[in-house]
């Protein structure tokens, strides 16, 4: 009887490595779908950094954090050297035209003339663009590369961030939060 019992125990012990291997498999599997380029930003939930910059378009004037506050907005980091920015540009135009979303541009590591020409040619969805040729505002915002889009409340709290292209799919992530911010603001 006791022999039988210990052999059952032995068999149960054999199950342990199996369970462990299965657990490890699950753990690794759920890691597979993760985008390694996606970083958690500690700025989410925080106030926009205080900065002073200049506008991309003439007349060139100083722009500060206060100019962004007051209305829920998207802050879109873009550059003429960035192919994905070109890909999302039409969608940005459409967002402004159809939903009246306020978008503010950060022209990141770019040159003024080509950037102005780009907006003249492809349309300008931005209420204004901040000219950031050295990426200094980019560092303050925690920008890793273009394009990136931040959703900011009227009070200047950064609510969410999309790394990469803004399109139907990624806008679907921001839209409910945007609608809520708009409802709060009104």
């Amino acid at each position: 009887m006791s022999e039988q019992k210990s052999s059952t125990m032995q068999r149960l012990l054999l199950l342990i490595p199996m369970v462990l291997a299965f657990g490890l498999g699950l753990f690794l599997y759920q890691g597979l779908g993760k985008d390694p380029n996606k970083l958690e930003s500690s700025l989410l939930g925080q106030q926009l950094p205080v900065f002073i910059g200049e506008s991309l378009n003439a007349p060139i004037k100083a722009i500060a954090t206060d100019d962004i506050l007051g209305t829920p907005s998207l802050i879109n980091v873009w550059a003429t050297w960035c192919p994905t920015c070109k890909a999302e540009h039409a969608f940005l135009n459409q967002l402004v035209a159809s939903e009246g979303v306020r978008i503010i541009g950060v022209n990141y590591h770019d040159q003024r003339e080509p950037a102005q020409q780009w907006l003249a040619k492809l349309g300008d969805p931005y209420e204004f663009s901040i000219y950031d040729p050295k990426g200094q505002l980019g560092i303050e915002l925690g920008v890793v590369g273009a394009p990136e889009t931040y959703l900011v409340g009227a009070d200047g709290i950064i609510v969410d961030k999309i790394t990469g292209e803004l399109n139907e799919r990624t806008w679907a992530q921001l839209k409910p939060q945007y609608d809520e911010l708009m409802a709060q603001a009104n």
């Binding site: 970083l39 930003s41 500690s42 700025l43 915002l141 925690g142």
Partner: peptide, 8 residues
């Protein structure tokens, strides 16, 4: 750096 880019 961590404030902007996380523990990464």
């Amino acid at each position: 750096m961590v404030q902007r880019y996380g523990d990464f």
